[in-house]
Design a protein around this nucleic acid. Structure first.
Length: 405
DNA sequence: TAGGCCATCTGGTCCT
DNA sequence: AGGACCAGATGGCCTA
């Protein structure tokens, strides 16, 4: 039995504490492009530029965040500093703490020695007084006495820095939210964790670059394995669910009916990943029946996998094609359909899996189970989705007409 | 209660 | 000097 956290599948991962930094993003990005093909790199650069534009879109950025109460409350701030001074002065012998509390020491000096100075003298640089005996004088530039005015400036600077840092992290989170929407599996109610989002995005880019490089259609198993490489088990289940993949079924098919799957000439490296998801129905359609010479023009697959992978029927590759395949305008939850497991556990009933589907499903048969309702998930439409929602409505209407006439 | 994830604060470093 | 970026520390929230 696979347990799934209803809020965050990444929480199940036994990863050590990690912070999402630009360095980790760079490290992930460096793994994405294993090939020296200039054309693929150019396309991916274009995709990267598109993502950068997407993330830098001012409409996507959160509104100005309110300052916490203490920012505007100087008295509470002073109390905070006072508490810090009290707590940090408990162990004066700790040299490491000494560095960290230098500001507090300065504050202390300000209180003890400078209160009677007038404001003009406060602007002067004054050598630090000799410390009283026990500890040697610290190296480095001589510290200035922390006057009241200086302390105020310090506090103001610190508050501004905190605000900037807060906004910076909010922007980063906003970009991560946008990234969540363009990776293969998006659920507003069950958000991927930051690290899982980055991993899935990296795998997704890898998978797309493999397709571009080889010009071949990967088999379903390898595709999902590639997407799920390094992800936690709950996230793997989520992605597999989004791709309508029943690992138990495809594993058995792999052994009992290998002919139904792509031969092992897959362009994706097979790696043993312990799929244990057995809560999803069988794939509605089997892979491998296609004869299309081009993966992006395939008309043989059906179901989420194909719609996800080849859904954009545009015959053009570069530029707009890439933007189309990566852009949420074609990869949207606004017109997506939910994939619900058969008899889901109680705690999963509120899950809201959405599968990004693209402009044109591959066949009419594939569309039979597909309800194209522009407002289907309007509750989960975000600001960005709302932004592009209007443009997509016409497409949905056309598709509805196409499939229901 | 432990562990995972997250937001925030903070000081350091680098760059303009 | 000030801003951007980073990483460590901390505490809150949530789940198993």
């Amino acid at each position: 039995m696979v347990s799934t956290s209803p809020l965050c599948p990444g929480r199940q991962a036994a990863h050590s504490r990690m912070s999402i930094t630009a360095r980790s993003c760079d490290a992930a990005a460096n793994d994405v492009l294993p090939y020296g093909l200039a054309s693929e790199r150019a396309r991916l650069r274009a995709a990267g530029s598109m993502l950068a534009r997407l993330f830098s879109d001012s409409n996507l950025m959160p509104e100005a965040h309110k300052y916490p109460a203490w920012v505007e409350d100087s008295e509470s701030d002073e109390e905070k500093l006072r508490e810090e001074r009290n707590s940090e002065s408990c162990d004066p012998q700790d040299s490491q703490a000494e560095d960290s509390v230098s500001v507090a020491q300065d504050n202390e000096e300000a209180e003890t020695g400078m209160e009677e100075e007038d404001e003009d003298e406060e602007e002067e640089e004054v050598e630090e007084e000799e410390e009283n005996g026990t500890r040697p004088r610290k190296r480095g530039p001589k510290r200035r006495k922390m006057t009241k005015a200086r302390m105020e400036r310090f506090k103001l600077r610190r508050q501004k820095a905190n605000t900037r840092e807060r906004n910076r992290m909010h922007d980063l989170n906003s970009a991560l939210d946008n990234l969540r929407k363009v990776v293969p599996c998006y659920s507003k109610t069950q958000k991927l964790s930051k690290i899982e989002t980055l991993r899935l995005a990296k795998n997704y880019i890898w998978a797309l670059s493999e397709i571009l490089r080889s010009g071949k259609r990967p088999d379903l198993v390898s595709y999902v394995q590639t997407l799920c490489k390094g992800l936690s088990q709950p996230t793997t289940n989520l992605v597999a669910g989004c791709l309508q993949l029943n690992s138990r079924n495809f594993l058995s098919e792999q052994t009992a009916e290998p002919g139904r799957l792509q031969p092992p000439t897959s362009t994706f490296a097979m790696h043993p990943y312990p799929y244990q998801c057995a809560r999803l129905p069988s794939p509605q359609c089997q892979a491998g029946a296609g004869t299309s010479s081009h993966p992006l023009r395939s008309h043989s697959y059906c179901g989420g996998y194909e719609q996800h992978l080849y859904g954009n029927g545009s015959p053009e590759y570069p530029g707009s094609e890439l933007e189309g395949s990566l852009s949420p305008s074609l990869c949207t939850n606004g017109g997506s359909y939910s994939l619900k497991p058969e008899s889901p556990p109680e705690h999963e009933k509120n899950y809201h899996y959405t599968m990004h589907y693209s402009a044109m499903p591959s066949s009419r048969g594939a569309a039979h189970g597909l309800l194209l309702r522009p407002g289907l998930h309007s509750d989960s439409l975000t600001a960005y989705d709302s932004h592009i929602h209007h443009d997509r409505t016409a497409v949905y209407e056309e598709l509805n007409a196409f499939f229901h006439n």
